[in-house]
Design a protein around this nucleic acid. Structure first.
Lengths: 156, 156
DNA sequence: TATTGTTATACTCTATAACTATA
DNA sequence: TATAGTTATAGAGTATAACAATA
């Protein structure tokens, strides 16, 4: 996504977007690789991440992951088959099924997210501490301004 | 990926990685959504992006996209069926097949990447120009330091 | 009737293995 | 023999539509 035909007047602007896009894909790819090392796809990783501090119903899970309920059925099937999550029939509403992380699932997601955080820290290690702090401030500013649009909060 | 159990001494560090990870997924999701609006998956978008300034063989395409050659066969099949790319038998090596963007494919990828760049620019519009410039400088610094690890250069 | 979840079906995406054609 | 590409097959991931059980 290079700024091939940018008029000179907007070149700085486009280079910023271009650089940020590249950095985003570098970081996204880093998680993808770390998860893949443990046999997890991105969506399985997100599933486990969402379950870290929740025990949602299938329906809630579909909303959290922005997937159709039938997609979540298959996703949970495969995770359950691997022993990473369990289905629990709800007693409050006997139609509902709650999904919970197993110990194996929890230790897996903790491991992947720990390595990923270390990767990102390593990527930022080339910056001087003051620059890292400046970057942190700018990124926070952007995120706050777009709090509503983040959609899926990866490990929310 | 919040820093749930970070010791206080490293909390600032983790918050930076956390923020950058969130921003990365925001931007990645932005492209995914824009591509999806035009009926393109991420991999189809990357295929078209790679073909913007190249006419590689299937084999070269597999290396560029980091996919098995059989995966590329299917990928190109589906893109060709939609009229986005064409296969051209190489005259130099009659085993080889070159893949080229059609006019429809080119106009599609130009449209998606243009909208995406506008999206990223809009995301950054909340920053003062001087802050945007500072962000640009920091991001460039990180990218330069990790030039070799970027793996697939999305629209390279 | 409405909601929750599963199942049947179809398509994309991916890899491995076996194959054809060319070098 | 080695390389370029396709095809057969299998599995993950996704959505739509039809279904069963419960509310």
């Amino acid at each position: 996504m290079t700024a091939r035909s940018a008029p000179a007047s907007t070149r700085t602007e486009l280079n910023t977007t271009d650089g940020l896009a590249q950095l985003s894909f570098l970081i996204h790819g880093t998680l993808e690789r770390r998860a893949g090392e443990r046999g997890l796809s991105m969506i399985q990783t997100r599933l486990l991440g969402v379950l870290r501090d929740r025990t949602p119903s299938m329906n809630e899970l579909a909303k959290l992951l922005v997937l159709d309920k039938s997609s979540v059925s298959g996703l949970v099937d495969r995770a359950e088959r691997r022993g990473l999550v369990t289905r629990i029939r709800s007693t409050a509403d006997r139609r509902a099924v709650l999904v919970s992380l197993t110990d194996a699932g929890r230790s897996l997601v903790v491991s992947v997210s720990g390595r990923f955080e270390a990767d990102v820290a390593a990527i930022l290690a080339c910056l001087r501490p003051s620059d890292r702090q400046a970057l942190s401030r700018l990124v926070s500013q952007v995120l706050v301004a777009h709090a509503g649009e983040q959609g899926v909060d990866l490990f929310g």
